[in-house]
């Protein structure tokens, strides 16, 4: 099993968009190591040639007639937004300034 380093955890936290503090990173490296060691037993099970199962029942596509139905009112949806402007979600910048 690959040893998880502090840099690995920092990278994963970046991918998961969680700005972990140094103290959190230190704590998490040890904990994740122990958990990963425990869950790695799945690799010892007799899984050779076994079909992976992603869902408890067969997944079939479900369709419905393409009929217009009422949806939530804009103000009801925006009521829970951190910021709204002119009937739209207001969000921080997504591009660099230059």
């Amino acid at each position: 099993m690959a040893e998880l380093t502090r840099d690995d955890v920092a990278h994963l936290a970046g991918l998961a968009r969680i700005d972990l503090s140094d103290a959190e990173l230190d704590k998490m490296v040890g904990e994740l190591g122990i958990i990963l060691e425990s869950v790695a037993v799945v690799q010892q099970a007799p899984i050779e040639g076994v079909e992976p199962m992603s869902h408890p029942m067969p997944i079939v596509n479900v369709t419905r007639p393409d009929v217009v139905r009422p949806s939530l009112a804009a103000d009801a949806v925006l009521a829970g937004a951190p910021a709204a402007d002119q009937q739209r979600f207001s969000v921080p910048r997504i591009l660099d300034e230059d």
Binding site: A13, L20, L32, I35, L36
Partner: peptide, 17 residues
């Protein structure tokens, strides 16, 4: 970081891995 507790962060990072 501010809104999730320790266990939630732990599992999100484990799942990401």
């Amino acid at each position: 970081d501010a809104g999730f507790g320790d266990e939630v962060k732990r599992r999100i990072i484990l799942g990401t891995y």
